[in-house]
Structures are given as structure tokens and as C-alpha cells.
Design a protein around this nucleic acid. Structure first.
Lengths: 331, 331
DNA sequence: CTGAAAGCGCTAACAC
DNA sequence: GTGTTAGCGCTTTCAG
């Protein structure tokens, strides 16, 4: 007990001044230093098991050595993987990582942004909610914190993302080649950039083949919304495939198909987007598009570390699965 | 740009001293304060959009207002849910939450514990790896940080856990009632307390019916280990059910069963433990035992906030699923 | 090559 | 009621 040792105590034990200890700690002037002095200091540090207090250091250096990850829901595996990518790079660089969960609420997100300002975080890897508080974002970033947006677009902020249009086009062509023509689309929430991009890329690619979606509904990127939208669609239309803008909704659609007595893929093809980590555990295997989310996290963290901040686009990959397996001729 | 405003600037603008601003900020002596003074200060704070610097405050108050979550893999939905529970309680109480991912490595975990020491976190919600660095843990907790272990046992530390024995017994009885008798068990890693508890609870309950497991293998709580152990078992034995110590391994076992040409549940029953959030998306539905992990996170955080630190055990719940659906008479 | 001194922004005694 | 002062633990000029 009795509090951790301070630099003063280390100095006293080593018989030097605090400044000398500090120099050793920070590797300054190491070349112009008597090896013995250094040894003594190191020994004292070891002996007392001394660790410099970050708060004091931050205060003095005017930098916190802290990053943050701010996402709508950390329990969503997609976001959790992002956090992991960030944490791993940040930790290696000696940064601590704060976690923020906005719970899809603008208000909570704003409060988090303010907290991060108080914390003087040096950088934030950020997945904003649909209509973020631009003012809070501006305040934070004009405080000197770097902000990198991931998998979304926010005007004026650098982004790490993927080519959603291209990914959707890949998926569309895959389905067309398999013979699907009556395709229903469950889009993401309106006002979210990825939702638009995925929808547009998909519709355009279909258009190139002279095909149009049977219908387009907007869901909320959740399992439940995928389920209810699909239910809705299947009661009204007779598509031969349902494509959802993410995996969670696609799986919801699978449940709906099952309840409607449709067999996947025999009666209905289903596809998603993201390739969430457990996508491959779903049976039948989901057809999806891989988004390298963990990599996006580490790239974003790297951008925070480098001075070079600029947008970055990573490639996506089509993952064919059993849920869209129809032969061109039908069966 | 040009740096954030300080308490001095607020004081100057309000025409008062910094202490007065501080008093307003902290709600001290609010009653013995001229309402006008308070108004002026509040106005100045508003005007400058001032936020007190946490590092300075921490240094002076000798408390960081920071908690941490340290887990083996934040991208594991089980741990991510835990983090969410912690974050939500901590945030409400004005605490920031650091995230640490030990990547199942003792070395990384140790380094994280040191970093948390430097950070002077006030509390840690901790899921340790199999053979943790007890020394690092002791150093941290004797620095004054409260440490609550979740879902594991570490001698001398308070725990938030569940009754794994009872849960396993529940599961065993469910299977026995359904008529399963030749049950293979895939346990968790040796040296992990939950693994032992689950195994023992299961074996004991079987014993009560005069039944013993066909065999017991130890896996690593991962999908891959579940797959390979099950493969192994199915090549040698002819169990009518495979029970895994967690869902991830159970799902691995499902894949193995499939590859061996066994139909679930007709030829082979399969059960897990944890009820990970996407367990219900798996088809056929997994039989499992629910562990309220998010709740465990919020309870742990609450323990950090309250002065009362002591172990806590939350109840588990059996979730019957289609993977163990055999009738008593067989089919 | 090393020490002394000042100060980062804030809070808490202690004055008045 | 409010201001003055000292100091949390550290880094960094500036002397020597």
C-alpha cells in the first residue's frame, strides 16, 4: 500500500536528481551520460518497481498518449473486431485505448465526444451513428484530436472504408450468373453512407444486365429488421433471392424464409455483406462480401500514429456460399 | 486551435478566481455562494466551451476516474458483451473505460497490467488467461486498484461468476431425460476454473444416473478445437451426443458431425454452454446454457463503484434447442 | 554530464 | 463568500 513510488524517491535511492531519472526514463541525452549513473538509476527503478504516472506526464507533456474507439455497439462482432485492430496497433505504440459505446444514440455519442475532449485523447477511431452531432465532432477535432471515421462517410473527416459499390456489384454479378433474376433488396438505414453505396452499387450492376430489383426496403442493419422486412417481402412478392445490405439482416431473412416454408437455397437465395466472424458457422453457408474490418481498425490506428492523415480504401472480396447456389438453368 | 481554455481563462472572463470556478465545477460550497457569482462562472464556462482537463484533475485529486476491461480477446462476442456491460455502468458514473486485449498471452496480459498501473486505473474488470502472472496482478491491486475477476477464479480476488456446476447438471439431466446415454464431453482448457467446474458438474450429474461420459477431451474453448476434438471422438467412438464446454466448441463439433455424415440431432445430439448472442442463429438451434455475461459486466462495474467488494454468483438458465431433441425411446 | 527551478491545470487548505 | 497559496508528479529549459 502507501502509494506508488515517485520519481523523487527513485532519484533519492539512486543518489541523483529527478531530472536525471527523467532523462533515463525518456532516453534523452543517453549518449552523454555516465554509464554508471544510468545503471544506478535503472537499479533504483527496478528496486522500487517504479512506473511513471501517466497523468503527471500527460499534464507536463501536453499529450495524453490515449486513443479512443467510439462505436454504436461494442457487442456487435463487426465493431468488436474493429476495436481489436485498433487496440493491437495502439498498444504496441504505447497508447492506451478508451472504449466508447454510443448505443446507437446521438445523445450518448455526443456525451462521449465531450468526455473524450476532457480526456484530451490524441486520436479517435470513430463509427458515427446515422445523424451525428457535427458540432461535438468539430469541437473534438479542433481540440487537436485526430479523428478517423471507419466504414462511414462524414464530410470533412478522413475515412478508412471499402469500396461498397464494387463489392455490391461483385455480389450482383455472382447472383446474375447463377441465374437469379427476381431479386429483392433489404437496404441499410437511410442516411448511412454505406447503406446508400451498397444499394446503388447493387442496383447499377443489375441495371447493366437489364434487371431491376423486385423491391427495395430499408432496414436498420439489425437481425430483427432483416427478419421483419423479409417477412414483409415474402408475403407480397415471389423473389427468387433476397439480398441484404449486411449479414445480420441476411440471417434475419433466413429465419423469415424458414418460417414461410421456403428452403434455402432451393426456393430462395440469400446473401449478405460484411462476413461477420461467425458467418461461416451459419448453415447453409451464407453468400457474402468480405469487409476486412479488423484491418480497417489497425489501418485507422496507424493513421492516427502517422502524421499522414488521408482517406483510405481497402479492397473487398466476394465469398460465395451455399445460400446462393442455384444453377443457371434452374433446377 | 490554440489549445483548449483553462480554468484561469474562465476565471478571468468571469472576473473571479480559479478556486471559485473550481468550486462551481465540483459543486462544493454551492449553498454559501452568491447566485450571481455562480451565474457568471457558468456563463464563462459556456462561452468558452470549457472542459476541465482530466489529467490535471487526476493528478491533483490522486484518482484517475478510469476503469479498465482486460480480456483475452475483445472480438469474442462473449467478452465484447462483458465490455458493454462494464462500459454502460462506468460511463453513467463518469468513468472512462480503457480496453485491454491480452490475446490469450500471459506476456501481453502482464504488459497490460503494468500499463494499467501506470495509468492508476481505479478498477479493473478482468478475465485472466490460463496461468496469469500473479505477481503483476498483485502489484496492480496493491497499488490501490480494485480488481474484479469475471467468469474465472483467481485466489484472493473477488469474482463475478455463475454456478457452472449447477448449469452443467441442468444440461446433463436434460440430455438424460431425452434418452441420451453415450455422451462424449469436450472440456475447456486445463487450468481454467470454469472448465473444471463445468466438467465436474456434468460428470457428477451423469453419475447420479449411473452413467459416465464415453470420453473426455480437453479443447481450448475455440471453434477449431471443438472441431478437431469432435472429429477425433467421432472417428473412434459412437456417442449419441457430444457436449462441449462452450458454444464455440459445440459449433465446431457440429461441423465435424456434418463432415462425418451424421445428422444433428437424429444421429447425434450436440450441446454447448454460454449462449453466445448468435447461438440462436445457428441451425439447428443449439442446446445450451445461458450465462448472463453482459449482466456480469455491469455487476462487476457496480462492485468497482461501490465500496463493497465481494464475490457474486449469478444464476444460469438451460436453453433447450433442436440439437438435442431425441425422444426417450429413440426414433 | 548533471542539478535547480519553474510550471503544466487543477483542487484544497487556509486566509480574509 | 471568495481569493491566495501551495503542490500533485513529471519534464524541460537553463546554469554550472
Amino acid at each position: 500500500m502507501g502509494g506508488q513510488p515517485t520519481i523523487k524517491q527513485v532519484a533519492a535511492l539512486a543518489g541523483v536528481s529527478p531530472s536525471t531519472v527523467s532523462r533515463v526514463l525518456n532516453g534523452k541525452d543517453e549518449e552523454h551520460m555516465t554509464p554508471e549513473t544510468k545503471e544506478k538509476v535503472l537499479a533504483a527503478i527496478e528496486k522500487l518497481d517504479y512506473t511513471p504516472l501517466r497523468a503527471a506526464r500527460s499534464l507536463r507533456r501536453q499529450r495524453s498518449q490515449v486513443f479512443a474507439v467510439l462505436v454504436p455497439d461494442i457487442s456487435n462482432p463487426f465493431f468488436a473486431l474493429l476495436a481489436r485492430g485498433v487496440e493491437s496497433v495502439a498498444f504496441r505504440a504505447g497508447y492506451a485505448v478508451l472504449i466508447g459505446d454510443s448505443n446507437h444514440s446521438v445523445a450518448r455519442e455526443s456525451r462521449h465526444l465531450s468526455l473524450l475532449l476532457a480526456e484530451r485523447v490524441e486520436g479517435v477511431v470513430f463509427i458515427p451513428v446515422a445523424q451525428p452531432d457535427m458540432d461535438a465532432i468539430r469541437r473534438l477535432s479542433s481540440s487537436g484530436a485526430r479523428v478517423v471515421v471507419v466504414d462511414r462517410q462524414v464530410p470533412g473527416l478522413p475515412t478508412v472504408g471499402v469500396d461498397n459499390r464494387a463489392g455490391s456489384a461483385l455480389l450482383a454479378e455472382h447472383l446474375l450468373k447463377l441465374g437469379y433474376r427476381a431479386i429483392a433488396y433489404i437496404a441499410g438505414p437511410e442516411g448511412v453512407s454505406t447503406a446508400h453505396e451498397r444499394l446503388e452499387g447493387f442496383a447499377e450492376a443489375l441495371g447493366g444486365w437489364g434487371v431491376a430489383p423486385v423491391c427495395v426496403h430499408h432496414g436498420g442493419y439489425t437481425y430483427e429488421s432483416g427478419y421483419s422486412k423479409a417477412k414483409n417481402i415474402l408475403e407480397r412478392e415471389r423473389p427468387d433471392a433476397v439480398v441484404a445490405a449486411n449479414d445480420l439482416m441476411a440471417i434475419g431473412a433466413m429465419t423469415a424464409a424458414e418460417e414461410c416454408g421456403l428452403r434455402v437455397p432451393d426456393d430462395l437465395g440469400i446473401a449478405g455483406f460484411d462476413r461477420v466472424p461467425w458467418a461461416e458457422l451459419i448453415r447453409p453457408w451464407l453468400t457474402t462480401v468480405e469487409v476486412p474490418i479488423s484491418r480497417m481498425g489497425s489501418e485507422a490506428a496507424q493513421m492516427l500514429l502517422d502524421s499522414s492523415i488521408g482517406s483510405l480504401q481497402l479492397p473487398v472480396k466476394l465469398i460465395p456460399g451455399e445460400t446462393c447456389a442455384r444453377k443457371r438453368e434452374g433446377r
